[in-house]
Design a binder for these strands. Structure first.
Lengths: 112, 112
DNA sequence: ATCGCATATCGCAGATATACGATAAATAAT
DNA sequence: ATTATTTATCGTATATCTGCGATATGCGAT
């Protein structure tokens, strides 16, 4: 009887956990690193770079996509993925705040 | 046949994924937040603060402990948990590096 | 429309994670 | 030693994740 009590927690905590969950696999960390290194890559290139089958890589891409961490654009017959830096930064910021590791960035700048 | 291909990835990526995995549940995010807010708390207090049974909370504490995120000390009959700030900071740093969000820490606002 | 390629989705199997009651282990006090 | 209290662990049920082959979908060219 493990009826996933996630809904009993504050929305912010659920969102943060979902973000962490999206990064909770080395393949997905690798994908992020790869996209960071070369700005953009199509699915096939990512498949070639990882020790996983195409179907599996596609699934991992969907996981990252579901939390909004990726951008993608049709590029002929291929689909080019890149990182949604905005989302990544915003998530990291929430992280810092919740985890309390945001000391010297103490200019929260609501005034921009 | 999903024999967990995690070992085929670089150690750093596996470690980072494990850290993310430890934070991939709202209950564990809540525990970190709670410990951040009050410096130290025993298991019973955490149980009271969460909508979960004692056994479940204990399990979540073990998950956080396994990746080195917690300190604990016997305190009479209780066990007081606190955050291992060292480990937390170190993990966050690796995160920043891998996720590429560590550049503008020194560059204050590229005011366009 | 058909072909060839690139990617997503389906369906399945095995592995982990989640949740909890029951119980064990440890401590403090009697 | 017994009791009460606190926490960890065990056993179990359900849910979710991982991984892949097979297949469907989408695109560009023929």
């Amino acid at each position: 009887m493990a009826t996933t009590k996630q809904s009993l927690f504050p929305e912010g905590q659920v969102a943060l956990a979902a973000f962490a969950g999206a990064l909770a696999h080395p393949a997905r960390i690798a994908i992020i690193g790869l996209l960071q290194a070369r700005e953009e890559a199509c699915c096939g290139e990512i498949v070639k770079a990882l020790p996983l089958a195409q179907a599996t890589v596609s699934q991992h891409l969907q996981v990252l996509n579901r939390v909004g961490l990726l951008h993608h654009r049709q590029c002929g017959p291929k689909i080019c993925y890149s990182i949604n830096c905005e989302a990544l930064r915003s998530f990291c910021h929430s992280f810092q705040c919740t985890l309390g590791t945001a000391e010297e960035v103490a200019a929260p700048a609501p005034h921009l």
